[in-house]
């Protein structure tokens, strides 16, 4: 089990790193081709956006576990331990319900728009829109894991902006 978890984490982290690299490298190349070589890349923007969406979908679960999703905790933290645990479980159930709905209707959405093709490379948009399903499932797994085995709901982590 722990090997499986380690493997998952390694894979998710590596794909996230790869995704960010693609965004940075293509962003730089786009400048080189337009300004330097006078022949603009036409597909790079599409690939950068696609790459970032998949990065986000794989990275958001990791972000949840590392406490990057901030909430207003002062009311709950003022409660006695038992009640607080109850609130945290209720909160987790609401989040899971929401993510479940996103996974389900996300697949309806991705399937119904599968005939739409991307504007320059022409791949089916199921590859873009399907990401939201994977993202919801992976975030859901992290929320579940943190609620069952974690240190409780996420505290203010390293912060975002």
């Amino acid at each position: 089990m722990s090997t499986l978890l380690r493997g998952y984490r390694m894979a998710a982290e590596t794909l996230c790193i790869l995704g960010i690299c693609i965004v940075a490298v293509l962003g730089g190349l786009q400048v080189v081709f337009r300004y330097g070589l006078g022949s603009s890349l036409v597909w790079s923007e599409e690939v950068m956006r696609l790459s970032m969406i998949w990065t986000v979908m794989l990275g958001s679960g990791l972000a949840y576990s590392r406490g990057h999703f901030l909430g207003m905790r002062f009311a709950v933290d003022a409660l006695p331990a038992g009640l607080r645990r109850g609130c945290d479980v209720l909160a987790a159930l609401l989040v899971l319900g929401f993510l479940g709905a996103i996974a389900w209707y996300g697949s309806v959405f991705a399937w119904k728009t599968r005939l739409q093709s991307s504007s320059t490379l022409g791949y089916s948009l199921i590859w873009l829109n399907g990401a939201v399903v994977i993202g919801a499932l992976s975030m859901g797994a992290h929320v579940l894991a943190e609620t069952l085995w974690g240190k409780g709901a996420p505290q203010g982590g390293e912060g975002v902006e």
Binding site: C16, I17, M52, V56, M139, V160
Partner: peptide, 10 residues
Amino acid sequence: TAIISSAIYI
């Protein structure tokens, strides 16, 4: 970077 940006994007 990937993790911080993921939280912002979500």
